[in-house]
C-alpha cells in the first residue's frame, strides 16, 4: 500500500507550521500521529500535495493548568493523556474515554488533537470534549481564534478547522471532583464505538446537582444529551431516576445504519448505555 507522491515539511513551531500550510495551498494536509491519515493516504482515498508534519512542533505537546481549565496540547499522545495527573484530576472523563481508544500501539502514536480534528463520528474523544464544554484553540494565517466544542464539530469528518488552520490546543474546564464514566459499546476490543456514552456527574449528598452527557456515533457529530441532563438534575442518584432520565437519550439523535447496528438498535443502545454510564459516573 503505497501513497501517491507528496511533498513533506516538518516545521519546528506553530507559526512556522501555519506558514507552511499557507504556502502549500488547498491540498496540504496536517500530519499528527498518522493513525487515521496514513491509512487514508495508503489506500489512496486522499492524495494531498504536501504533508505538514507536526512532530517537531514541541509547543503543541503536553498538559498545563490555566486557571479554571486545563489545556491539552493537540500533539499530546493518547498514551500521555492516559497518564497525565492533571487530566486525571480535572477531566477524568477524557482519560477514561482515551483508555478505550484502539490498542497500545495506536495510543502511543495517535494524538488528542488528531482524534478531534479527524472528527470521526465513531471516534471516542469528541463526545467527552462536547460533554465537558471544551474550547478549541485554532491558529491560522490571521492569528488565533477559539471555538466552543458545540461549534467545532460540523459534520462527518468535518470540523470548523479551515484547510489553512491548525488545532493548537484544547481548553477543558475543570470538572474536579465530578464522577465520570465512558461507556463504549463495540464488538472487539480494538474496534471503534458502535455507540458510546460520555457521562460526568456532580452529586451532592445523594442528589445529582449537575450532569453532562454526550453520545458518540448517534449522529454525524457528537450529540449532547440535554434531555437526559435536564431530567437528572435535582434527582436522587438512584436506579429509577437514572433509568427514567436515560429514556431521553435518543432524543435529537439521527444515527446511521451499518452492519453492526440499525437505527432502532442504536437508539435502544443509547438509552441502555446512558443509564449505565450515568450510574457508574454517579457511583450508584
Amino acid at each position: 500500500m503505497i501513497p501517491a507522491n507528496f511533498d513533506y515539511v516538518a516545521p519546528a513551531g506553530v507559526d512556522e507550521a501555519v506558514r507552511a500550510l499557507a504556502e502549500a495551498g488547498e491540498d496540504a494536509k496536517v500530519l499528527a500521529g498518522g493513525q487515521s491519515l496514513l491509512p487514508v493516504l495508503r489506500m489512496r482515498l486522499a492524495a494531498p500535495t504536501t504533508i505538514v508534519d507536526l512532530r517537531k512542533v514541541g509547543d503543541m505537546r503536553g498538559v498545563r493548568e490555566d486557571g479554571d481549565a486545563i489545556v491539552i496540547g493537540a500533539m499530546t499522545t493518547h498514551y500521555e493523556v492516559q497518564r497525565d495527573p492533571l487530566v486525571a484530576e480535572h477531566a477524568e472523563l477524557i482519560k477514561l474515554a482515551t483508555d478505550t481508544v484502539a490498542d497500545p500501539q495506536v495510543r502511543h502514536r495517535g494524538t488528542f488533537g488528531g482524534a478531534l480534528a479527524h472528527a470521526d463520528p465513531a471516534g471516542d474523544l469528541p463526545a467527552p470534549a462536547v460533554a465537558l464544554g471544551a474550547e478549541f484553540v485554532i491558529a491560522g494565517p490571521s492569528g488565533r481564534r477559539t471555538v466552543p466544542a458545540a461549534e467545532f464539530f460540523v459534520d462527518f469528518f468535518t470540523t470548523a478547522l479551515q484547510p489553512d488552520e491548525l488545532l493548537v490546543e484544547v481548553r477543558v474546564p475543570k470538572h474536579t471532583g465530578w464522577g465520570a464514566h465512558y461507556e463504549k459499546f463495540n464488538r472487539v476490543a480494538q474496534a471503534w464505538s458502535i455507540v458510546g456514552v460520555a457521562a460526568c456527574v456532580r452529586a451532592d449528598g445523594g442528589t445529582i446537582a449537575e450532569a453532562r452527557v454526550a453520545l458518540t456515533n448517534m449522529a454525524a457529530t457528537p450529540v449532547r444529551a440535554t434531555g437526559v441532563e435536564n431530567a437528572l438534575v435535582g434527582q436522587p442518584a438512584n436506579a429509577e431516576s437514572i433509568k427514567a432520565a436515560a429514556a431521553h437519550a435518543a432524543e435529537g439523535t439521527s444515527p446511521t445504519a451499518d452492519g453492526n447496528a440499525d437505527e432502532r438498535y442504536r437508539k435502544h443502545l443509547a438509552e441502555v448505555l446512558t443509564g449505565r454510564a450515568v450510574a457508574a459516573a454517579a457511583g450508584s
Partner: peptide
C-alpha cells in the same frame, strides 16, 4: 451491512467522508 458505514477506518471512503 447497511448503506452507510458506521465510522472508523471503514467509513473514510463513504461519500462525504474524509476528503
Amino acid at each position: 451491512l447497511g448503506s452507510e458505514s458506521g465510522g472508523g477506518l471503514g467509513s473514510i471512503d463513504v461519500p462525504g467522508g474524509q476528503q
